[in-house]
Design a protein around this nucleic acid. Structure first.
Lengths: 225, 225, 225, 225
DNA sequence: AATGAATGAGGATTCATTCAT
DNA sequence: AATGAATGAATCCTCATTCAT
């Protein structure tokens, strides 16, 4: 490759597309390219040269917008997360007049939707989460931060569902299990899309969690007596 | 990876440690180093130079023992898996005279033990599973193969537990959910060891799965009628 | 310079410090930063980006004030030299009623003071003087010019001291030796501040030079006979 | 330039000169090239690419022989110093039947010879000595170390010359001054080869030092009384 | 049963400089 | 009187791999 950079110098002077863009636009172009690539190939697979090629901006321009590759990936994660959050909010109309159980199952379905809505983001994030490198951890930290927020949101909604029945520790345990199962199902489906039906699996998960909640409150009653 | 890494190669190797090992021993040394590094840093983070340094053998010797980096990582996974299997067998004495539920919870506890027994193996495997690169897939395939075997084993034991109550599809769904939750809990604990108590979480998972099983068989009864 | 340097540029500059300074002030800020950095790291070590960061002004502003990096460094040298000259004049009150020898030693002490007064200037200048690169020689030329002036001044005052005793060539030889020793002592003290006492060393230098002067005039007498 | 690497790929396969050299030979080739370049252009001017080009070995091979550019330059300094030391020893036949003063002047002449014998080495070393970079200081340290050895040697021979007349501190002061003057004269001659006659200057320096020695021992007598 | 030496391709990042606004 | 954005060339260095010995 070697000369396949930027926009191909073709023929004489190539003052063709020196857009002198509005900055923010270039930044977005870079983030778009990086999001795409990082989703496909992970942190290490996302070379600055590739992002440069795909975004149409020279590598040095990437470094004008981002301090380092690590920070670029962190920005990718941040933006993806915010977009995903927005879509989540748009998706879920507040429903009324439903039973507790129906409400809960709806919440779980929402989680399922969340997974299918942001596969690249989650895949990249989980890969980073599993890594244990000493340095260059900004991107990883960003994902964990963002994940923490999602977890807190889940705990809050569970507290509403199980008010009275479960105490704070139980709710957290249930939320942790939910998140774990969601992550795991995501992976299962990534690995073998044909082998898992996410809708069915989350339906089953909802029932499992309700069963677990019952067991927890029963345990609680027993210990209280 | 940029500059100034953790590791330092130091020019022409000093002839310090010419152990002239007996072949198999060198191979093991290389695998040990590679296992350690790959567990920490994933596929891309595992450079041949690093493995060379950590094992004390020159890079060319690694290529004498393994065809390529990809095959090396595949071998790492294979060996880790076999060791893990051995430990699993040694660990779990067949218990008798227990109730169905107790037996089931014991099985789940075994799964929990499996996670804590081979963290590097699982961490690396999950990272590979999440990756989406076209070439160099030997290592990834190896993990998925190994994982498939584990899944089959789980299905087999679930069939024994839920014989009569659930049909094959339900058992598979339950096993899939179990595996997903296990993977997810593993990740949760890797990310924040203090935030998750694996014993408690798997206890809760067992109750959740029993709840799900009940729901499944109820559904089945309903549809049969 | 490789990666991960001391300094960090941080993407699109935050608009924090838009002082809208009055031109001359910005120029001074840039010169201050460049003086500091060039004193520490030499010509090549003084990157425009570093100067930008340390001065708080964007790199493009540096190019508004200076034609090129080379001219910037030349300006650094020029300004440093003038400041140093000023301080020198302020420092040295003309003394009267002293013996020849006392006057000479006072002159040498002045030279010593000159060194300690402008270490960055001298350090950078000597570094430039030692370099041998063809292009970008403005800064270097500027230093040598300035140095020539200092040398001429020294020759003039030596001519006064040794009027009658030495001829022009001898005086120049003595001045050359003085300057060389001063440069060398400066380096010695930069390299190991604890190892050299500049006052003592210059005291000794004064005595050495007087000895040399005596030898020179003796030689001259001999050759005249 | 870009493609002007290694040995020019000309025409078809270029298996022409894959010397598979004896290692040590390649190392020397690299050091030769680096010595030449560093002498001309200093530390920063010595790019790995240039050394690669001049030595005929690819850049990556340079990194097989040396850990980093910094260590390469350090090795350059070390080798240059040792070669210089050898030449110094060869140069100076032990003379007998001369007066103290003649012996001393001979020693100084030896120092002069030393300068003209290793100009590149000294120039590079002094440049490094003047720098104040935080990192990458191996080369600099190496020069200072080597310089220290030269200083010790000088002190030892001065102790022989001035045994009885001067005490240890005085000898050190004299040696420091000698070295400083030598460095300074070297610089003066680098800057303006026509302006300095090294032989004359060192002759004068010898007389100056003898004068200084006399002054020192007179001072000592005075203070002893 | 190894290994010293080499290598081309590519890695991230910094360089001095430009120019439209 | 500036500056945000960009850029091509160069920086040091690491990569997986090869091959003669």
């Amino acid at each position: 490759m070697a000369a396949a950079k930027t926009a191909r110098k073709s023929g004489p002077r190539r003052a063709e597309r020196k857009i002198r863009a509005h900055g923010e636009e270039s930044r977005e172009r870079i983030l778009d390219a990086a999001t795409q690539i990082a989703g496909e190939r992970g942190y290490d697979g996302t070379s600055v040269a590739l992002v440069s090629e795909r975004s149409g901006l020279p590598a040095s321009s990437i470094y004008w917008h981002f301090e380092s590759k690590d920070q670029l990936i962190a920005a990718v994660i941040e933006r993806s997360f915010h977009r995903w959050l927005e879509r989540m909010h748009a998706w879920v109309p507040p429903r009324e007049g439903e039973s507790q159980e129906e409400l809960f199952e709806a919440a779980i379905r929402r989680t399922a939707a969340a997974l299918t809505e942001a596969p690249d983001f989650l895949r990249l994030g989980l890969m980073l989460a599993l890594e244990r490198r000493p340095q260059e951890a900004t991107a990883r930290r960003m994902f964990l931060q963002v994940r923490e927020r999602a977890y807190k949101g889940m705990v809050a909604s569970y507290e509403a569902f199980f008010a009275g029945a479960l105490d704070a520790a139980d709710v957290r345990a249930l939320a942790t299990l939910t998140m774990a199962a969601a992550d795991g199902l995501f992976i299962a489906q990534e690995v073998d899309p044909a082998g898992v039906d996410l809708d069915d699996a989350f339906q089953l998960l909802a029932e499992a969690l309700l069963g677990a909640a019952k067991a927890l409150s029963a345990r609680r009653d027993r210990s209280r007596r």
